[in-house]
Computed example of a mutant assay.
Amino acid sequence: MSFLSKLRCITIDVTGTLIAYKGELGDYYCMAAKSVGLPCPDYKRMHEGFKTAYSDMAKKYPCFGFAAKMPNIVWWKTCVRDSFVRAGYDYDEETFEKVFRRIYSTFGSAAPYTVFPDSQPFLRWAREQGLTVGIVSNAEYRYQDVILPALGLNQGSEWDFGVFSGLEGVEKPNPRIYEIALERAGNIAPEQALHIGDSMRKDYLPARSVGMHALLLDRFKTPDAKSWSQSGARVLPGLVETQAWLTAENSSNGTSFSSQDGQVSSL
């Protein structure tokens, strides 16, 4: 018996699992600055400035300002301004507004992202098997409304429901986000659901903590994959291998992904 026959739902992470960023953050910030006649910011300083600014905003106003009822564009404007300031670029208000609008519109489009070639086929295949497919992501509303559809990942053809932190007010690794997903899937039992992601801390552990099955994708051959495997997680290189594993007869004997079968696989 295949493991697939035990499932009613698959939930899946977005960034690093279904899609990836193209290029570097500095590419887009540089283009935005150049569009208003400014010199290109230093990539390294810009990257470090953004990491710190984003981390601070996420702590002060988690879930993109959900609890504070902060408009999405205000959250990002504050974050982007702080990113530039920390990188040593303190533009006047009019100049910054032009730069920010370019950045905000770019990251609200398909432009900075690429879809892994196995993503759409896997999602469609899962739904064809009668599974409910859910997106679980620490992302704001534009992923649901604009970005995923622009990338050809549409609700109704590739996925059935979404749980996005900016719309729910809860984010990974809080296990509650997985409980919400189970509710959206029809209040199914957690042992009938599998979550697929690329983070041990945000995907695998919290999904397992509510009783779901889970596996990790190692899209970029990260050194962490070995420790993931050693800790008991099943690690696969992509969704083609995931589909093959799910449909294999006697895969894991229908049990959860235990330390006995956790391994980096190249089926």
Score class of each variant (00 low, 15 high):
3 F>I: 09
6 K>E: 15
9 C>G: 00
14 V>E: 08
17 T>A: 03
17 T>S: 03
18 L>E: 00
19 I>F: 02
21 Y>R: 13
22 K>A: 12
22 K>E: 13
24 E>T: 13
33 A>Q: 03
37 G>H: 13
40 C>E: 12
40 C>H: 08
42 D>G: 03
45 R>N: 14
45 R>Q: 15
53 A>P: 04
59 K>C: 12
59 K>Q: 14
59 K>D: 14
62 P>Y: 09
66 F>H: 11
71 P>Q: 15
73 I>S: 15
77 K>Y: 14
81 R>E: 12
82 D>T: 15
82 D>K: 15
83 S>P: 12
87 A>E: 06
91 Y>V: 01
95 T>D: 09
97 E>R: 03
99 V>M: 13
101 R>T: 10
101 R>Q: 14
103 I>R: 02
105 S>D: 15
109 S>R: 07
110 A>F: 03
113 Y>M: 06
119 S>V: 04
124 R>Y: 02
126 A>Y: 04
137 S>W: 08
143 Y>V: 01
147 I>D: 01
151 L>H: 01
157 S>T: 08
158 E>T: 06
160 D>S: 08
161 F>D: 01
163 V>N: 00
164 F>I: 13
166 G>E: 12
167 L>H: 03
168 E>T: 04
169 G>H: 08
170 V>Y: 05
176 R>A: 06
177 I>W: 01
180 I>Q: 03
184 R>V: 01
185 A>K: 00
189 A>V: 05
191 E>N: 15
191 E>R: 14
191 E>Y: 13
195 H>Q: 12
210 V>L: 04
211 G>K: 09
212 M>R: 02
217 L>V: 09
221 K>W: 09
221 K>I: 06
225 A>E: 02
230 Q>A: 13
233 A>E: 08
235 V>I: 11
235 V>S: 05
235 V>R: 02
236 L>S: 03
236 L>G: 02
242 T>Q: 01
248 A>L: 00
249 E>L: 04
251 S>C: 07
252 S>L: 04
257 F>M: 07
257 F>W: 04
262 G>T: 03
263 Q>P: 02
266 S>R: 09
